[in-house]
Design a protein around this nucleic acid. Structure first.
Lengths: 203, 203
DNA sequence: AACGATAGAGAACATTTGGAGAACGTGCAA
DNA sequence: TTGCACGTTCTCCAAATGTTCTCTATCGTT
């Protein structure tokens, strides 16, 4: 899939992801052009269109900043592991007959998702440790209690639990008793995405 | 097959594969020439054509970077998600340029592995919560400090951190201050596997 | 010495790829 | 609401690239 892209199209794809990593939002065409050294928005648009055709990116037509990362659609059946059962403290393994395998593809993959490596202990009581990966789905609004990636003042990105207060302010609450919740006016907080999954590898 | 090639053709074939391994894409003729010490694109093209006749390589005519390795099915990252960066509390997102995607396959898949759904809070301080999945690799012996699935008296299966004591006994230590460690003679404890990964789905 | 096989340089050409910029309509913020 | 910014489409152009040629050189064999 990546192999049928031209050099410039591949660079465009990388630049979109890099911009998303740095600024928290996908770039506009002029910004993409600046990153790539291209003056013409038309040229950038042609490259983005090629990425859409390749299925790597989605675009909301006409919208400003309308580029979205597309998830690679997994082939069903390829990423399955046997699901043996439920382990209970003090109980033998319990077989689960109806749910014989778990499809990791359905577990994690989807459009507009990306992975972040977590650094720090601010969510440790929610079971998200230093070094864990979180799968984030790009959304602009999240519900109370969801764990979100939030951009504060367009600069600082944090991973916190979200609470929308009645007075219009927003509380970003760490899952760590040593850290205090942060309260901001809604205008200063921009939701970048919600955590849909978490994964950890033991070496 | 390879025996019918001349020295230079064999070197060309190796250079193509090396470029693919190193850069992720097949080389253009000029790049191939540089790797081989050849000035003329025409000469490189002749060598590539010989590889096509030998069935080792395929070419999309006219396309830039049109060389494809024959027999290599381009199944690029069926299970890959973009790995955007590292998120730090209070810091902007930090890009990870060299590690652009995470392959969930390599993360989880492997021989002798299966998945268990965890019930209970006995490992909560190790970031393994009630309802999480753990990927377990079947082994019979584990090292100190590893999280293992252990069978006690052939009946009760538990998920605990392992410690082999000097007197031959085995300590199964929960990651939960409310629960006490359990000490058994080694004869009563059978290791079924070690936890190699953990994953959790929100919603 | 003659010959064929292998290999390289470079010219010439067609096509692909990439870019600039104008023009237009619309989303979006002041 | 209005003005601007932005996405979109278009034409024209230049450079890069693949492709095909011819000419030359080296080496081993007959």
């Amino acid at each position: 899939m990546l192999t049928e892209l031209t050099d410039r199209q591949r660079q465009t794809y990388d630049a979109i992801r890099e911009h998303l990593a740095h600024h928290g939002v996908t770039p506009k065409l002029a910004e993409l052009g600046q990153a790539l050294g291209i003056q013409s928005r038309g040229v950038v648009h042609r490259h983005v269109r090629a990425l859409v055709d390749a299925g790597l990116v989605e675009v909301e037509p006409g919208r400003h900043r309308g580029i979205r990362l597309a998830g690679v659609v997994p082939m069903p059946g390829v990423m399955e592991l046997p699901l043996l059962g439920r382990i209970v403290a003090g109980q033998p393994l319990e077989a689960i007959p109806d749910e014989a395998t778990i499809d990791l593809g359905q577990f994690f993959m989807g459009p507009g998702r990306f992975v972040l490596r977590v650094q720090g202990d601010s969510m440790i009581e929610a079971g998200i440790l230093d070094g864990d990966m979180v799968v984030v789905k790009q959304v602009e609004h999240a519900a109370n209690g969801e764990i979100v990636v939030a951009l504060i003042d367009g600069e600082e990105a944090t991973l916190k639990r979200l609470r929308n207060n009645r007075d219009g302010s927003v509380t970003l609450q760490p899952a760590n008793r040593a850290l205090a919740p942060m309260i901001y006016p809604a205008s200063r907080v921009q939701i970048q995405g919600v955590v849909v999954a978490q994964l950890r590898s033991y070496r």
